[in-house]
Structures are given as structure tokens and as C-alpha cells.
């Protein structure tokens, strides 16, 4: 199944600079999405979700909060893989 040729073949994503390009693209898209916040007509459900940059800030912070809390959770619940010995 494994051939040397397969393993040696370089893919576009194998180059770190290409991964960086994707990250820059994401930054650019995010920048545009924040800029759009000035233009489009909002229909907030409540008052707080109509404030400038609510969704971008919420998305970013919620994500970080989840990841860091999970790291903290891991300290308490992590055991060996064969903990239940099955």
C-alpha cells in the first residue's frame, strides 16, 4: 500500500508558506466582515446583539473560552487510556 513515491510527493499544503497564505486569507475575510458591519442594515433580536462587532467578538471569545476551559477540565477528568481496563 505504501510506496516511496507516494511518500515523497509534495503536496501544496505541505509547504508551510502555503498554510500561512490560507491564514492570511482568513484574516482578510474577517477584516471584510467587520467592515461590512458598518454598512448592512441590522435586525437585532435584543439590544446587545445589535452593537458594533457583536458577532465577531462573541465568536472569537466564545471559541477561546471553550478551548481554555476544556484544557482546565482535562486536568480533572483525564485518566490513562486503559483506565476502565476493558
Amino acid at each position: 500500500m505504501t510506496t516511496n513515491e507516494d511518500n515523497k510527493r509534495k503536496y501544496w499544503l505541505d509547504r508551510p508558506e502555503n498554510v500561512t497564505k490560507i491564514v492570511w486569507l482568513l484574516w482578510a475575510l474577517c477584516f471584510i466582515l467587520v467592515a461590512v458591519d458598518f454598512i448592512y442594515h441590522k435586525h437585532p433580536y435584543f439590544s446587545f446583539d445589535g452593537t458594533f462587532g457583536f458577532y465577531p467578538i462573541f465568536g472569537f471569545i466564545a471559541y477561546c473560552f471553550i478551548v481554555f476551559s476544556a484544557k482546565l477540565l482535562r486536568r480533572f477528568v483525564k485518566r490513562d487510556e486503559d483506565y476502565y481496563d476493558e
Binding site: C30, Y40, Y55, P56, Y63, C64
Partner: peptide
Amino acid sequence: TAHVITQLQLLLFAALAFTTL
């Protein structure tokens, strides 16, 4: 328009948080 933009903002900024982390 509002639904598409707010959803894209939420999703892409979450993805941005991932790439940063």
C-alpha cells in the same frame, strides 16, 4: 442579509480563533 453576515462573522471569527490558538 443580516442572517448571512452575522453567521459568517460568528463562524469565521471562531475559525480565526482556532488558527491563532
